[in-house]
């Protein structure tokens, strides 16, 4: 699968904070075992109850575009032939207050609008140095049937 910004573009570092999001093939967000507060990005203490019993819980794959930008000026040489590209901010239906950055794979930048419904899809990427396969959460517009 070709990535939205090209197969050579930078990948996330994988560690205890990022592993669930970028490798599980599901939308997994940190949640407090005690007070059930969703927390994104993850941290070591729950901002809701100050507890430290935190784990990653699965959310449904539906979301909404809260905002987006269209990038016309590449700030890295590797993106010169990718502009213009869009970056969206998507809220997760099942995790109130949690927003994720992503790209909308099945839409041109000028097709996007705030409020559009989207669902998660995953870009599978083998890490060049080996190890676990990344499954990077991305988005698709849910197009209404006409």
């Amino acid at each position: 699968m070709t990535r939205y910004l090209g197969d050579e573009w930078t990948l996330p570092g994988i560690n205890d904070a990022t592993r669930a999001w970028f490798t599980s093939g599901r939308l997994k967000v940190q949640r407090c075992d005690d007070c059930r507060t969703w927390q994104h990005p993850p941290d070591e203490i729950c901002g809701g109850c100050q507890g430290n019993r935190l784990s990653f819980a699965e959310c449904g794959e539906a979301g909404r575009i809260e905002s987006f930008v269209v990038v016309h000026r590449a700030v890295h040489p590797a993106l010169e032939d990718r502009i213009p590209y869009a970056v969206a901010l998507v809220s997760l239906d099942d995790a109130p207050g949690v927003n994720a950055i992503g790209n909308v794979l099945n839409a041109a930048p000028d097709e996007l609008a705030i409020g559009q419904r989207v669902r998660a899809v995953f870009e599978e990427v083998s890490q060049p140095e080996g190890g676990e396969v990344l499954r990077i959460p991305q988005w698709e517009l849910i197009r209404e049937a006409r």
Partner: peptide, 24 residues
């Protein structure tokens, strides 16, 4: 190389600069 820390959540998606963040 890899996007680490705060950048891990943004850079793989092409959100990179203060201008882009403020635009959002």
């Amino acid at each position: 190389g890899r996007a680490e820390g705060d950048m891990a959540w943004k850079a793989p998606y092409g959100l990179l600069s203060p201008a882009q963040e403020c635009a959002l």
